[in-house]
Amino acid sequence: MRLDLGAIAKAGTSKANQTGGWRNYKPIFHQEKCIGCGLCKIYCPEGCVTMIEKKKYTVDYTYCKGCGICAEECPSGDIEMFVEEK
């Protein structure tokens, strides 16, 4: 935002960068067996899993890189990974 004054950037502007384009595997949140532990949200390195309501979580594919941590750590098996179709 001020390249001339030492390259000062504005807060949170990386959201313009849609890292979802990197994804090879895609998590599907079935929202059926969810027990509402929130581990998927807590463990997401992108911070792109959000809670819609209790026991109902979703992922923002704009940013999800498909690491699969959410599916691996989900204790109820509600999240499944699929190959991304491009």
């Binding site: 001020r2 390249l3 001339d4 390259a7 000062i8 504005k10």
Partner: peptide, 28 residues
């Protein structure tokens, strides 16, 4: 100062500038 570190206006100082802007920083 016009810009400084404070939570009310949380700016990022010392960012990485690639080939698309580094030369301009030296120009300035």
């Amino acid at each position: 100062p016009q810009y400084y570190l404070n939570p009310k206006n949380p700016l990022s100082f010392g960012t990485m500038v690639g080939p698309d802007g580094y030369m301009e920083t030296r120009y300035f």
